[in-house]
Write a protein that binds this DNA or RNA. Structure first.
Lengths: 198, 198
DNA sequence: TCGGATACGGAGCAGAAACTCCGATTGTAC
DNA sequence: GTACAATCGGAGTTTCTGCTCCGTATCCGA
């Protein structure tokens, strides 16, 4: 990503501008959704439109870069939490954090939805990355008895996208989140708090 | 809706064309999402663009008419089920049916999302209508002990929109639906089947 | 049947947004 | 410091889409 297609390293200003564009795009798409114009991104980044299109030859490629960055960050958060003391709290905390982000950042929901469209990823590696990180979080929570054993990363990611969508539109995101959490917990006896048993 | 703004009844061909346009719009928006062009709708309906815009002076108004029709139909289904013998099955059946529709019709999700944006409805009556119908369904299921008592129509509608969104993108909609259902059921003892007790 | 009102069709207009092109500018190797 | 290549900026091009306008066709009451 820091070299041109012909292999040469990018010039210093080019590198700087690329970062500015990416950051601006993230802001703009978060605030206005992915239908925001490329010109708006350029304005926010303080560069010309030509510069935006040189770094990202298509609006779609810009969007993809933003989503990849977002998903990478989420994956990072998930990996950090993977070694937490309380696996159940880690899992549900991550879930809640993502949903709360999504309620102000439209792009998060779209990123998750895109990550959910598995198998055929033009994106390449990042879809799986998040799913892997979530998978680890999920597996540990399941081993600790905090999450029902019969769900996989795919379902959790899809649910995450759905609840994020709901949170972004309707007001009572906390209540919806509570329903989802209860649906994710095991059904018998030791349900209430994430407490390992056995 | 069958008269002009000046109160006179519509001419026969006008009435016919209006119906054709509405049906075509439903098809097109369902298949391609709400960003489909008005011209596409006109083509599908077999009329000129001018005709579309005479009946629906704005694309937004056309879209609204489609969503209203969709929501009205859903509300109707919900009302029919309101007198079913098994309130729990009625509620969950309705939920599942809507989600399954949404997986092929993008417009359903958007309609639900719009219905969720409560209080400030330019749409007027239909938002509340569905919510009322869902509310009845919900209340009966709750009284029968099939659904937890601490959720309201607003949360259910939001959840419905979210799960529909997830179903439309990811593949495993059945699993996600199962999680949502379990989250909606009461947590203690007599949870499993919708069996009234007391 | 006939006349006037109503509705139709689609060319054309206006605005927006993605993308291109090239003269001006800036970074960097020597 | 200089020269050349890489990069920048933004006016301009293209394409698309919502919407208007008006000559033509259709309906319907008398």
């Amino acid at each position: 990503m820091t070299t041109t297609s012909s292999g040469k390293p990018l010039r210093a200003d080019a590198l700087r501008n690329r970062a500015k564009v990416l950051a601006a795009a993230e802001d703009v798409f978060a605030a206005q959704g992915t239908s925001a114009s490329t010109e708006e991104v350029a304005r926010r980044a303080g560069v010309g439109i030509g510069t935006v299109f040189r770094h990202f030859p298509t609006k779609e490629s810009l969007l993809e870069a933003v989503l990849v960055a977002l998903l990478d960050r989420l994956a990072g958060e998930a990996r950090e939490l993977a070694s937490a003391a309380d696996p159940g709290a880690a899992f549900f905390g991550f879930f809640a954090r993502v949903v709360s982000q999504a309620s102000t950042k439209q792009a998060v929901t779209e990123a998750l939805a895109e990550a959910g469209v598995d198998a055929r990823e033009a994106t390449g590696r990042t879809g799986p990355d998040v799913k892997d990180a979530i998978g680890t979080l999920l597996e540990r929570a399941q081993r600790a008895g905090a999450v029902r054993p019969d769900v996989g990363p795919a379902e959790v990611t899809a649910l995450l996208a759905g609840i994020s969508f709901a949170a972004g539109r309707a007001g009572g995101s906390d209540d919806v989140l509570r329903i989802a959490f209860d649906g994710l917990r095991p059904r018998d006896g030791d349900a209430g708090q994430p407490a390992p048993r056995g």
